[in-house]
């Protein structure tokens, strides 16, 4: 079952997740569960949008790395969008920006995902 408390939407066969600030708490694991549920339904394309995330903390990083590993395991694709400068810096530090394309807006990320189809 797909979690009702997580803010996400489907555009074609792309799932857009809004990380907001709950990615920084243990409830952020629900994001991972949403990904699991979609991966099980053979949906492999994800955009995670951070425009509602003020500053990502270590729990958030840990949850994100978990999500990325899961998507990669299934040979899926994930793009990030809407990063604030402070989060961009943190993603550089973690090395995430080397692995995951970072787009300015959710729309850009979705379009890029579509054009890559």
């Amino acid at each position: 079952m797909i979690n009702q408390h997580i803010n996400y939407k489907e555009i074609d066969n792309i799932v857009v997740l809004h990380a907001e600030n709950y990615i920084n708490k243990m409830e952020g694991e629900n994001l991972e569960k949403v990904c699991d549920a979609f991966l099980a339904k053979r949906t492999y394309k994800f955009v995670i949008d951070f425009s509602g995330t003020d500053i990502i903390n270590s729990i958030g990083i840990s949850i994100l790395i978990g999500i990325i590993e899961k998507i990669k395991e299934k040979k899926g694709l994930v793009l990030f969008s809407g990063l604030k400068k402070v989060n961009h810096d943190i993603f550089d530090m973690v090395g995430l920006s080397k692995h995951i394309p970072l787009l300015k807006t959710e729309e850009e990320a979705v379009n890029r995902m579509k054009s890559g189809q």
């Binding site: 903390n57 270590s58 990083i61 840990s62």
Partner: peptide, 11 residues
């Protein structure tokens, strides 16, 4: 555990 892992970017 999550905080430790996030601090060292461990999966």
């Amino acid at each position: 555990l999550y905080m430790v892992m996030g601090s060292f970017f461990a999966s």
